[in-house]
Design a protein around this nucleic acid. Structure first.
Length: 426
RNA sequence: GGAGAGGUGGCAGAGCGGCCGAAUGCGCCGGCUUGCUAAGCCGGUGAGUCCUUUUUUGGGCUCCGAGGGUUCGAAUCCCUCCCUCUCCGCCA
């Protein structure tokens, strides 16, 4: 969430930012509740001070007089209680409103209503020109007996899949390669819970608002399946005050990711593009509250992802995500889209976000600066590799006319040295 | 799942109705001492919020796992929840 002081001082900017994101907010309501709460808070402090002082006086009075003095205090107490209840109600309302205020997008976030207006900022390599009719990833995989959708549906419904044989191994190879690359860069690998309390979802900005996209356990356990390791990893140090010397924290985590994909019926129904469960290696950076540092980290985590795609020899482009396609918590987001022949276009495979202190304020994730001042951290994250979509790109871009699939050199060590997956079919 | 113990400042740990935002030790910061280092000595050292002050400063309120209750007054008593530890059971 944003700092209330910031909102008060920059109401116009907050309003404009929300408009850029196409998120309706009632800022006047928030400011009005805030003003009332602050006014009441001042009065409450005075009342409480009097109450505290009187109670202390009773403690010091001769025991014989205490009952009488206490009787007087009892009456004042009920007045105080009424004001305290009113204040608590205002605070709760304020908190609810505040959680809904989106972060202010950066100036260089493009205007635009949805993903069709994202602005391409970089393109690497060229889509391959096939000298045969390329298949989509489903056809490539089914021909090799690598994928089963019917049985997966029997087990878990639509948008699920079973990987079999080499494709299952390829998934593992991609994940492990991505993980190893990041560890080599000094990122600390973490294995984290993927079933989390809703506080972690609120803290990272997915709730309120994203409840429909998350699987939730029943009332016996108030736990939510995460859609990304970003949630547990960014929440790892919530409630802590970190030492400046320990920053930045660079984490990488491989986890399963779960997405309900509510409201996407009929969209991307074929294949692995939009599925309920996949594996992902995610990178998270936690550092000091400094714009330049944050921007440098943002570039760094985008480059980390680019290196993976270059290693896999997969053409990609980077888009600067426009206001209307940006989530509430982000200041800015760069999506990396990888070429997918069956889509005749680029499909989103990575999402690199920076948040300033939006998440850390919700998580109460702070650090003590060199100057001794306690501040909220800045957080950032990006995909390193997400299994399902990376498999689409690898199968489709590296398929051969004979039905086999070429393995990019860096992955071979993870596949017993093999340069080719599958048997010749044609 | 059953039985018990406990959650206090960066850490350890005392406090178990008012003198407690909190002893003591360690750590950390500053100073003194010292050829350098260590040891020693002195002082400082939680967070949030509001008010005051040009800055320094001073003051009010809130916070001792979370939420509720009892009381004039709660870290201390009661209730609910969360978490940790020990023993038993079950199990990967």
């Amino acid at each position: 969430m944003l700092d209330l002081k910031f909102i008060r001082a920059h109401a116009a900017a907050v309003q404009a930012g929300a408009a850029k994101k196409r998120i309706p907010i009632d800022l006047d309501k928030l400011l009005e509740v805030d003003a009332r709460a602050r006014e009441l808070s001042g009065r409450l402090d005075v009342l409480r001070a009097a109450q505290n002082e009187a109670s202390k006086a009773i403690g010091k009075a001769p025991p014989a007089d205490r009952a009488k003095l206490a009787e007087l205090q009892k009456q004042k107490k009920s007045e105080l209680k009424i004001e305290e209840d009113r204040f608590a109600a205002l605070e709760a309302e304020l908190q609810t409103l505040l959680l809904r205020i989106p972060n202010v997008p950066a100036d260089d976030v493009p205007e635009g209503k949805d993903d069709t207006e994202n602005v391409e900022v970089k393109r690497w390599s060229e889509p391959r020109v096939f000298d045969f009719g390329p298949k989509d990833h489903v056809a490539v995989a089914e021909a090799q007996g690598w994928i089963e959708f019917d049985r997966a549906a029997k087990l878990a419904g639509s948008r699920n899949y079973v990987l079999r044989g080499d494709l299952s191994l390829l998934e593992g190879a991609v994940m492990r390669f991505a993980l190893d690359r990041m560890v080599a860069k000094g990122f600390v690998p973490l294995t984290v819970p993927t079933l989390v309390r809703s506080e972690a979802m609120v803290g990272t900005g997915y709730f309120p608002g994203g409840e429909e996209q998350a699987y939730r356990c029943d009332e016996r356990d108030d736990l939510v399946l995460v859609g990304t390791a970003e949630v547990p990893v960014t929440s790892l140090h919530s409630g802590e005050i970190l030492a400046a010397k320990d920053l930045p924290l660079r984490y990488v985590a491989l986890s399963s990711c779960y997405r309900r994909e509510a409201g996407t019926y009929g969209k991307d129904t074929r294949g692995l593009y939009r599925v309920h469960q996949f594996q992902k290696v995610e990178q998270v950076v936690i550092d000091v509250a400094d714009e330049a540092t944050s921007l440098a980290h943002h570039r760094e985590i985008v480059e980390n992802a680019e290196e993976i795609l270059v290693a896999f020899e997969l053409p990609y482009r980077i888009v600067n995500v426009c206001g209307g396609d940006l989530g509430a918590p982000q200041v800015q987001k760069f999506d990396i889209e990888t070429w997918m022949p069956s889509r005749k276009g680029y499909g989103e495979t990575h999402s690199a976000s920076r948040f300033h202190d939006y998440q850390s304020r919700r998580l109460s994730l702070r650090y003590r600066g060199e100057d001794g001042v306690v501040r909220f951290c800045h957080t950032l994250n990006n995909t390193v590799a997400a299994s399902a979509r990376m498999l689409i790109a690898l199968l489709e871009n590296h398929q051969r006319a004979d039905g086999t699939v070429w393995v990019p050199p860096p992955l071979r060590a993870y596949l017993g040295g093999r340069e080719t997956l599958g048997r010749q079919l044609a």
